[in-house]
Amino acid sequence: MEQSEEKVPENQERGILLMDNWPGYDLDLFTYPQHYYGDLECVLIPHGIIVDRIERLAKDIMKDIGYHDILVLCVLKGGYKFCADLVEHLKNISRNSDRFVSMKVDFIRLKSYKVTFVYVQIALSNFLLFAKDVVGTGRTMRALLSSIEKYKPNMVKVASLLVKRTARSDSFRPDYAGFEIPDVFVVGYALDYNEYFRDLNHICVINEHGKEKYRI
């Protein structure tokens, strides 16, 4: 299946753009868990492309932060694989350069837009980086950013693997975006549907059969 530049153009500020008419890749071209056979529509983003894109995000982040230490706050649950790969790339860049950047990782979960942070870590951090799986409407990230204002961190940035184009968006944009995708329900790479599909390496579009099969 051909991938034309018109369907997937690149833009530094918005990440890799997957247009609304992007058909994805045929499932038969990839391996994935057999228990999901019949539940997926297509592979939207293959695992290898995801990992390569995250490596580039890590380079962009390291270029921006200078010598500042980093506190990475992973937004659970869907962001854990993105965060793990991003942190590993950040560490590799630090190890292979003439500068050492101290890096700490913490995890947060959002419930009803209320978050409890560890004040000491945030207050002492020169660079605070949120690692999130998907930015959709933007309300979640605005709530998170509002929650940390009282801790007065020196610098705050948001990295999101995916940005979803949706009419419900409040125009929030992360500082670092991996891919901008259409308003479709995606699973895989730790993104779930009722806790299923987190073990899928590729980012895929779930079909109606899959939604019905795993509906609660």
Results as ranks from 00 to 15, higher is better:
residue 77 K to F: 10
residue 78 G to A: 05
residue 78 G to S: 04
residue 79 G to E: 03
residue 81 K to Q: 13
residue 83 C to N: 08
residue 87 V to G: 05
residue 90 L to G: 05
residue 96 N to W: 10
residue 97 S to E: 07
residue 101 V to C: 04
residue 101 V to N: 02
residue 103 M to F: 07
residue 104 K to Y: 08
residue 107 F to I: 08
residue 108 I to V: 10
residue 108 I to E: 05
residue 109 R to D: 03
residue 109 R to I: 06
residue 109 R to W: 01
residue 109 R to C: 08
residue 111 K to Q: 11
residue 112 S to H: 12
residue 112 S to I: 00
residue 113 Y to S: 09
residue 113 Y to F: 14
residue 114 K to Q: 01
residue 115 V to K: 05
residue 115 V to N: 02
residue 116 T to L: 09
residue 117 F to P: 02
residue 118 V to F: 12
residue 119 Y to N: 14
residue 119 Y to T: 15
residue 121 Q to R: 12
residue 123 A to P: 00
residue 123 A to D: 06
residue 123 A to E: 10
residue 125 S to V: 01
residue 125 S to M: 00
residue 127 F to G: 00
residue 127 F to N: 02
residue 128 L to Q: 07
residue 129 L to M: 03
residue 132 K to M: 13
residue 132 K to V: 14
residue 133 D to H: 13
residue 135 V to K: 11
residue 137 T to D: 10
residue 138 G to Y: 11
residue 140 T to R: 10
residue 140 T to N: 07
residue 140 T to L: 12
residue 140 T to E: 09
residue 143 A to F: 08
residue 143 A to W: 09
residue 143 A to V: 09
residue 144 L to V: 09
residue 144 L to H: 09
residue 145 L to T: 14
residue 146 S to P: 14
residue 146 S to H: 15
residue 147 S to V: 01
residue 148 I to S: 07
residue 148 I to G: 04
residue 150 K to L: 12
residue 151 Y to S: 09
residue 152 K to N: 11
